[in-house]
Every structure is written in structure tokens, then in C-alpha cells.
Amino acid sequence: MNCLLVFWIMEILNLEEKVKNAEALIHQKNEARLEIVQRLQKREFDRFHIRTQLENLSLYHGYYKVDAIRYLQGALDEYDHVDEFTKQIKGSFHRLKCGRNSLAEEKQILREIKCAQEQKEKSCANLEAKSWSHWQLGDVLLNSKESIKSQFDQLYNELEGESKQQKAYYSKIKGLQKRLPPVEREISSLEKKLEEIDCERKELYGHLEQLRSCVDTRHLFWIVN
């Protein structure tokens, strides 16, 4: 009977020691997880800060003006097309009115007028369908070739005057773009480590519950007997 008592006591003590070891290991994993989470939060903030700087530099320091100039140049080209078609139509009408044309030549001129008129109407429709308000600076409405040309010249002159500043901005943007990939790689690595340690903690908690259940069972058996 004494041997059995010693056996049960030793088994319970052994299980309780395993419980303590499991709890200590879980504590270590929790501490390690906290460090990973804190590091991950810091790097995510760094990534957000870098991206915000890139967006601000792109929006306010030149890229906006470059896009605006490109867009307004397209509008001016469209107006030039309208002017060209208008001149072509007037020239054709002049040939039709003042020239000595055969019937076949008159039919050809009329076809040219019709074609030019259709192209002009298409260009006018394109101009009416587009909105230039996004590129508007100040109170000047971009509703004519003259107003768009004035806006285009203003932006172009401003951009030329900022060429030295632009070099500094481009250099800063390049530096930020170079810093971003390592930060994103570290974030990915930390997320993977966090996932791994969470799996380990889950297994440890499951093992701890089993050990505690065994201890409780041994205590209950000892009390009953």
C-alpha cells in the first residue's frame, strides 16, 4: 500500500511538473508573440508612412501638372482638328462656288465636304463629352480653346520654373520607392512568423489542457480510493 501511495504521489508530482513546464513554455511563446506583433505594427506604420509620402509627392509636386498638361494638350489637339476641318470645309465650298468644275469633280467636292463635316461633328462631340474642370485652377472656366490654352501655358511655365525642385522631388521619390520593398518583405516575414507561433501556442494550450485533465483525474482517483 505504501508503494502504491508513493507511486501515485510521484506520478502526480511528475504531471504537475509537466504542467509548470508547459505553462512556462506558453509564457515564452506569448512573450515572443508580443515582440513580433509590436515589430509588425511598427513596420506596418513605416509602410503606411512611406506610401503616404509617395502619394503626397506624386500629387502635389509635379506629377499633377504633368498629367494636366498632357490632358490639356489632348484637348488643344482636338480643337485644332475642329479648326482644320472648318478650314477644309470652307476651302471646298470656295472651290465649289468659284471653280470651273465638271459634274464628277463637284460630286467629289461634295463628298469631301460631307466627310469633313462628319469628322468635325465627331471632334465637337468628343469635346462636349469631356470635362476639363478636374484640371481647372482658379476661377477660369475651361470651356473654350482660348481658356484651355491659357491654362496649358500657365502650367507649362510653372513646371519649367520648378525643374530644379522637381529633381529633388524625384530623388526623394526614388529613395522612398527603394525603401518600400524591404519593409514589405519584412512585414510578410513577420506575418508568417506570427502565424507559425499561433499554431505552436494552439498546440501547447491543447497539450496543457490534457496534462491538467490528467492531474485532476489522478487527484480524484486518489480521493475516491
Rank of each mutant, 00 (worst) to 15 (best):
C3M: 08
L5D: 11
F7V: 07
I9A: 05
M10L: 10
E11I: 04
N14C: 11
N14L: 12
L15H: 05
E23D: 09
A24W: 02
A24I: 00
E31R: 00
V37H: 03
Q38T: 09
Q41F: 01
Q41M: 01
K42V: 12
R43P: 02
T52A: 10
Q53D: 15
N56R: 08
S58G: 11
G62R: 01
Y63L: 06
Y64F: 13
K65E: 15
A68L: 05
R70M: 10
R70I: 05
Y71N: 07
G74M: 06
D77I: 02
D83V: 06
T86W: 02
T86Q: 14
F93S: 01
H94L: 14
L96S: 08
C98F: 13
N101L: 15
L103C: 00
E105K: 15
Q108C: 01
I109F: 04
E112V: 12
K114I: 05
C115A: 08
Q117T: 14
E118V: 05
Q119R: 13
K120D: 02
K120L: 03
S123P: 09
A125M: 11
N126T: 08
L127T: 01
L127E: 04
E128K: 15
S131Y: 01
S131W: 02
S131M: 03
S133Q: 15
H134N: 04
H134V: 12
H134M: 11
H134A: 08
L141W: 03
L142E: 11
S144M: 05
K149M: 03
N157I: 06
N157M: 05
S163I: 09
K164H: 07
Q165R: 10
Q165F: 10
Q166M: 13
Y169I: 14
Y169G: 00
S171F: 13
S171V: 04
G175Q: 11
L176P: 01
L176W: 11
Q177L: 15
R179P: 01
L180E: 12
P181H: 08
P181C: 08
P182E: 13
E184C: 11
I187S: 02
I187Y: 03
S189Y: 07
L190W: 04
K192G: 07
K193L: 05
L194W: 08
E195A: 15
C199G: 06
E200R: 12
K202A: 03
H207V: 00
L211C: 08
R212G: 01
R212Y: 02
C214F: 08
C214I: 00
C214R: 14
T217V: 03
R218T: 07
F221C: 10
F221T: 09
F221K: 09
V224L: 15
N225W: 13
